[in-house]
């Protein structure tokens, strides 16, 4: 219990540090939120700066930002000037979470069985096939994968729309394209972990006792092979959520990835801060959840900590 509380306290401290760093770094970047091709009249620019409290000393701005962040209010966006950062997060976060969840499902559905298959057929055609396919999926950038999928499924077969949001068919290609590289990593990791377990004394004894191969894989190999896989899943899930920028751009999905980059490019201080803190919280919670799960799976981890 104490260990859990310590982890939560560490997460809170991390959030505070990230908030302070993000606040300073985004302001350190050259240019301001109201710089454009057309220069505003000095009185108009002064009015805008006053509206967003940018005319106040930095410490006062930080105090204001921190006070807001503590109650989950990041204020109005500086590029979406009629919209609160909270509204943007509420609209975009579920899309990114949905996309990430779809990608994670793809990764698990493909990566785990293929990894186990490769381990069982070590050195044979299936094993080599899985290794070659995973190398290909890992080396292809997201946008190439997405382009090839659009060319095939939209323009060749006419099955799926090329982009946009309007039905479950719109989400199929993005989820698969997002999940494939993670599926490849997962397959390789599962294969390595399963091979290690299969070579262990425990499994050799079980096999000598005449335990059926299917049961051996299900009850002895899989649970142990899952430990390193679970350790990978936490950061992978966070990566799926935060790394969906390219996929969101190619498929024109209204997720958080594009906001994350655009907020920094537009010097939208409030939105950049809101998204950075939200992503950090998400990443922290994912790692925390993975730790909890690992303790369940492997009692040795609990005793060590």
């Amino acid at each position: 219990m104490n260990a859990l509380l310590r982890r939560l306290a560490a997460l809170l401290l991390t959030l505070l540090a990230v908030h302070a760093l993000a606040f300073l770094l985004v302001r350190a970047a050259r240019g301001g939120p109201f710089d454009g091709d057309r220069t505003f009249a000095p009185a108009v620019e002064a009015a805008l700066r006053a509206e967003y409290h940018l005319d106040e000393p930095l410490w006062r701005q930080y105090q204001r930002a921190l006070g807001g962040a503590l109650i989950g209010d990041f204020g109005p966006s500086m590029s979406y000037r009629d919209t609160e950062v909270g509204t943007i997060l509420r609209q975009a976060l579920p899309v990114s979470l949905g996309l990430g969840l779809g990608g994670l499902t793809t990764a698990l559905l493909l990566g785990l069985p293929l990894g186990l298959l490769a381990a069982r057929r070590r050195g044979r055609f299936a094993d080599r096939g899985v290794l070659a396919a995973s190398t290909l999926a890992l080396s292809l950038p997201n946008f190439v994968l997405a382009g090839a999928a659009i060319a095939l499924f939209t323009f060749r077969l006419g099955w799926l729309p090329p982009a946009g949001s309007g039905g479950w068919r719109h989400l199929l290609m993005p989820c698969i394209c997002l999940g494939l590289p993670f599926a490849a990593q997962l397959a390789r990791l599962t294969r390595t972990a399963a091979l290690e377990v299969m070579d262990s004394d425990a499994v050799r004894v079980a096999r000598a006792k005449g335990v059926a191969e299917a049961r051996l894989m299900r009850c002895h190999v899989l649970p142990q092979a899952l430990v390193p896989v679970m350790a990978f899943l936490g950061p992978a899930a966070a990566g799926l959520l935060t790394g969906s920028l390219v996929i969101e751009q190619v498929f024109a999905l209204p997720g958080l990835g594009a906001h994350f980059v655009q907020a920094a490019l537009n010097r939208d201080y409030t939105l950049a801060l809101g998204i950075t803190v939200s992503y950090t919280a998400l990443l922290g919670l994912m790692t925390f959840a993975t730790d909890l799960l690992l303790r369940r799976l492997d009692p040795r981890i609990q005793s060590l900590s």
Partner: peptide, 28 residues
């Protein structure tokens, strides 16, 4: 939250003109 997001992203479109408007609308 995730289900609501996916459903919102799957909102049916109405008949009429469809415009690829480029950058996002930032201020109405």
């Amino acid at each position: 939250l995730v289900a609501a997001g996916i459903l919102a992203a799957c909102a049916p479109s109405q008949p009429g003109l469809r415009v690829a408007n480029g950058d996002d609308v930032t201020l109405l």
